[in-house]
Design a protein around this nucleic acid. Structure first.
Lengths: 253, 253
DNA sequence: GAAACGTCGG
DNA sequence: CCGACGTTTC
């Protein structure tokens, strides 16, 4: 069994106490918002624990990394001239593409236009790069809740940058290139959230969450998926990220 | 036996892991540089451990506090319109006056003039307030090393704001009002430091310290002093202050 | 070197 | 609320 996890760490340096216990449970960990320049990435800590890690980030914001129990055969980072939002690594026949999509701030803002542009560029990249007859995994913090079931109050949130029609459409176009939403394959109707905003008090207790982190697999790979679930305990330990790790299990490819 | 301690905590909120173990060893703890507004002072933590505490500070800088195992009979804070550099409490016949003197930045700076002015005002206050036939303790971070033996390199430091002639004179005038330097009573020739600057690497190991924290007693009280010593172990634990707690032991008054 | 704070961003 | 960072002070 192969376990792959996506987790927005909200600073890798402040989350090592969560990341290493998590690595004991999974084989490949895709991280977003590492918030660290490459030269300051805590690479040695991973090596000391016997893990491999590849990363790509800039100062203070964004940043992505993939940690793994086996060494990637190859990897690259960056699309569209930006190095801190996409990193991909190949493990044998499996390509793992890890994405941190822009949040977008507000519907009217420049950042939202940039977010929509990002999805357009990401779609172009994936159309080129992915062999939809192969084993490809697209995971990360997409900053999109695709359906009403994926947010706590859909009718109140239709103008939110992570739930607006335009961004849902942009995301859907990517899925429709040929991906399967692995969580929904196994839990089509369950309310499962991967993000509880720090700023809303007792968000977990009150169920005020979002499903914005995703694991998407090409069909051939999705056929091998056995389950997909969140690890909420990591959102409720000491000094948590405001995201929740999302795990998918696959038969070995 | 009564044990009184002076300790520049360099943020009370970041030093509770040191302050509470220290309180197990002493009866009265005078703290400087609490660096916290009164409304954010961690008063509840002291009460939870069964200690009394009085404090007076402003935002971010300075700030003084006195914690104790018995309740003070009375206390006040502030001299000269400044509330965050002096606090005093009476325990029966004993008055404890806790001071955080300005550092002074550099000999030429405005802050140094203010430092000299502070000592002048402090002297005036003490002349008025202290009954030199009674039991009074003046302790705190004075930011003055009174003699050559009190700094690691006297000849290199004659222009330092904590070792300049003018500030030594200002401090000496206060002592000569009628105080005894309790550490020097018991250890007249020993090199004992209470401060090792964070910025000098391996300062403790290399002996690059200063004696700028003091416990001064009126003569009647000094007669009852049994010993005075530093607790260097608290400068070498996890997350230390750059100062060292200084303890004086007295027969009960 | 370490602390508080203000600003920016999620 | 919780990050990173720049600034100020010691």
């Amino acid at each position: 069994m192969l376990k792959v996890c996506t987790y927005n760490v909200n600073s890798i340096r402040k989350r090592l106490h969560i990341v290493f216990p998590l690595m004991e449970k999974v084989d490949i960990l895709c991280m977003q918002e590492t918030k660290v320049e490459d030269r300051k990435f805590p690479e040695a800590d991973f090596h000391l624990k016997g893990y491999h890690v590849v990363f790509s980030g800039g100062k203070a914001r964004n940043g992505v990394a993939i940690a793994s129990k086996f060494e990637p055969d190859e990897y690259f980072s960056g699309i569209n001239g930006e190095k801190d939002r996409v990193i991909a690594a190949r493990f044998g026949k499996l390509w793992v593409i890890n994405v941190y999509a822009p949040q977008g701030q507000s519907i009217e803002s420049e950042y939202y236009r940039y977010k929509l542009e990002f999805f357009k560029k990401l779609k172009e990249f994936l159309s080129e790069f992915v062999d939809f007859k192969g084993y490809y995994l697209l995971c990360g913090d997409m900053n999109v809740a695709p359906e009403d079931i994926d947010v706590h109050s859909p009718d109140k949130l239709r103008n939110h940058v992570c739930f607006h029609e335009d961004v849902k459409k942009a995301f859907k176009e990517i899925v429709q290139l040929g991906f399967v939403d692995v969580l929904r394959k196994h839990h089509p109707k369950e309310r499962i959230y991967t993000f509880y905003d720090y700023r809303v008090r007792d968000a977990v207790k009150r169920g005020l969450g979002w499903r914005v982190d995703h694991i998407l697999a090409t069909e051939k790979l999705a056929e091998k998926s056995k389950d997909c679930y969140v690890l909420l305990e990591y959102r409720t330990t000491e000094k948590p990220s405001d995201h929740v790790p999302l795990v998918a299990e696959f038969e070995k490819v």
